[in-house]
Design a protein around this nucleic acid. Sequence first.
DNA 1: TCTTGACTTAGAGTGCACTTTAAGTGTTAT
DNA 2: ATAACACTTAAAGTGCACTCTAAGTCAAGA
Lengths: 131, 131
Amino acid sequence: MTIAEASRKYGLSADTLRYYERVGIIPPVPRTAGGIRDYDEASCGWIELMKCMRAAGVQIEALVKYVALYQRGDETLADRKALLVSQREQLAGRMAEMQASLERLDGKIWLYEQLIGGETAQQRAQEGQSQ
Amino acid sequence: MTIAEASRKYGLSADTLRYYERVGIIPPVPRTAGGIRDYDEASCGWIELMKCMRAAGVQIEALVKYVALYQRGDETLADRKALLVSQREQLAGRMAEMQASLERLDGKIWLYEQLIGGETAQQRAQEGQSQ
DNA sequence: TCTTGACTTAGAGTGCACTTTAAGTGTTAT
DNA sequence: ATAACACTTAAAGTGCACTCTAAGTCAAGA
């Protein structure tokens, strides 16, 4: 699979795929005799994993560490697990924060629904909320 | 309340508070006779709201628009609500993506738990997953 | 054979959200 | 009165994660 095909398949630009490989969050991709990238299943798996982790806000640096550990082999299993657990916790924390914000947004939207369709200055004052 | 006090209270640097005011996601803060910021309850409310929205990943640009609409008064209620609804949807989308990543992380962590404490190459192969 | 288009690299540029710097003014404590 | 510190502004700098550019190579079709 060429870089253009992988790009289409995963919705990441060819630039981004080369960047991911260069920084090391995708291990070296096999090449054709001419030196052109030829993405195989393993490489595609890495792309998908990294797309997923990046979408969740996991930093490139953490992913670089994970891939480096992975490439060192089985002796790094415990370290890799610890890294994932740490990232999982950070992710859960961000999600909790976002949940609070979501609820706050919902509250404000509800308030706007009350205000629209017959709002008066008095009514707004009664609601006891501004912003 | 001075900028230093507000900074401590909300865990945002004085620089960030000034930046927020400059770009317009916090309306002009009242000043003392000497021109020094004197954060009142309304300003504090804005700080808290913006801290919350930024933590959820809402872009500065959207918040600038919201505050601008707010300052134009009651005629912008519908527009403000629409803006909030749009941001709410984007936030919910990001959270769904993150939930998927969280589940994927949990799956990998579970796998590492199986592998650690008696792993062999055969066992890893049987798990049918790499990375 | 020639052009088109996909690929390569190293390195520079971009956008976002701060963050720091420089130069200066005002306030508080001894 | 003077030091130390908090404040002001405009503008430059930073860090992250891409994103683009320039210069060049290579394979396939007219």
